[in-house]
């Protein structure tokens, strides 16, 4: 029998190139995750400042952090703001996406553009503009969590629409027509045909909005007033090195949580894709 060759084909990259790129990618991943890993390491470091050399293992910072009233308040504020803003943004986006995807809307280009503008406006600008509005403008809500929540709805809207609209548009219109043909009302059609198909996208839009809000600091720092959300609390704390050590443990927990949430959002979205393809 003739000799067998190693015949792995290298059309787009040479074997050497592949080795080099793999090394580059590995290095990239290391640097990418290094900060996160360092944070986790320092959350267990006995020293009072996050600096080398490490000074031994401890969980006291976790204890301190969890017993800190201000941290708990900030966290709870963030959770409320994020949940509410994500829910509202998703609902409004869902309502708006349906006619934009399906119906003849006069001035669709203008509405779509308006909807996406918040994506381009620098958050600093939106932050100060909302500060003026809430403190001095016609909507004197004042500064606080409601204001932050509203600000986050504005920013999360385009994301939610960008997730929901293509999904709704991709659903075969004949499904709707079939539902109507079988006697369903508009609401029944939506509840029984449309909704089951877009539930994953709704969840994913909610999660993305939630993750965004729980990490948003620029807008919140302008309009949170004396009710800091967690990122605002963190931001003010990080400016003072002596305060940072108590912040790291919660930060670590938050990183892990938002990491998991983000992955959940992605997994749900992919499952939704599969559902639509009928697999």
């Amino acid at each position: 029998m003739a000799r067998r060759r190693n015949t792995e084909t290298f059309v787009v990259i040479s074997p050497t190139g592949k080795v080099l790129l793999t090394a580059f990618f590995a290095l990239f991943l290391v640097v990418l995750y290094l900060p996160t890993v360092l944070l986790i390491v320092f959350s267990f470091n006995a020293g009072t400042v996050a600096a080398f050399p490490l000074e031994g293992l401890t969980t006291k910072w976790y204890g301190l952090a969890l017993h800190s009233e201000s941290i708990r308040q900030a966290l709870w504020a963030s959770v409320r703001v994020a949940t509410l803003s994500a829910a509202i943004a998703t609902l409004i986006a869902l309502m708006a996406s349906y006619p934009l995807a399906r119906r003849h809307v006069r001035g669709k280009a203008v509405i779509s553009a308006l909807m996406l503008v918040p994506l381009v406006v620098p958050t600093v600008v939106l932050g100060v503009a909302l500060l003026i509005l809430f403190q001095k403008g016609v909507i004197p809500i004042g500064l606080g969590l409601i204001s932050v929540m509203i600000g986050h709805v504005v920013i999360a809207l385009p994301f939610a629409v960008l997730i929901l609209l293509p999904r709704i548009a991709s659903i075969d219109k004949r499904l709707e027509e079939a539902a109507y043909d079988l006697g369903a009302s508009g609401l029944q059609m939506f509840r029984r045909v449309m909704l089951p198909l877009i539930v994953p996208s709704i969840l994913s839009a909610f999660l993305i909005s939630f993750v965004f809000s729980i990490d948003e600091v620029v807008i919140a720092s302008f309009i949170a007033g004396d009710q800091p959300t967690y990122p605002v609390y963190l931001y003010s704390g990080l400016k003072f090195p002596e305060k940072t050590q108590t912040l790291i443990p919660v930060a670590t927990i938050m990183i892990v949580l938002s990491f998991l949430l983000a992955i959940a959002a992605e997994v749900i979205r992919r499952r939704g894709d599969r559902k639509l393809e009928g697999r």
């Binding site: 609902l91 409004i92 986006a93 309502m95 708006a96 349906y98 006619p99 934009l100 399906r102 119906r103 003849h104 809307v105 509405i111 308006l114 909807m115 503008v117 918040p118 406006v121 600008v125 939106l126 503009a129 909302l130 003026i132 509005l133 001095k136 403008g137 016609v138 909507i139 509203i150 600000g151 709805v153 504005v154 809207l157 629409v161 219109k173 709707e176 109507y180 508009g186």
Partner: peptide
């Protein structure tokens, strides 16, 4: 291409337009 009325179409769009008008365009105006 729809089975719905103009009322429901713009009714569905209204919340988004109101939110963007009040909390996005108005602050920029200020």
């Amino acid at each position: 291409n729809d089975g719905g009325s103009a009322l429901s179409t713009y009714g569905l769009l209204a919340p988004m337009l109101i939110v963007l008008g009040l909390f996005f365009l108005a602050p920029l105006y200020y």
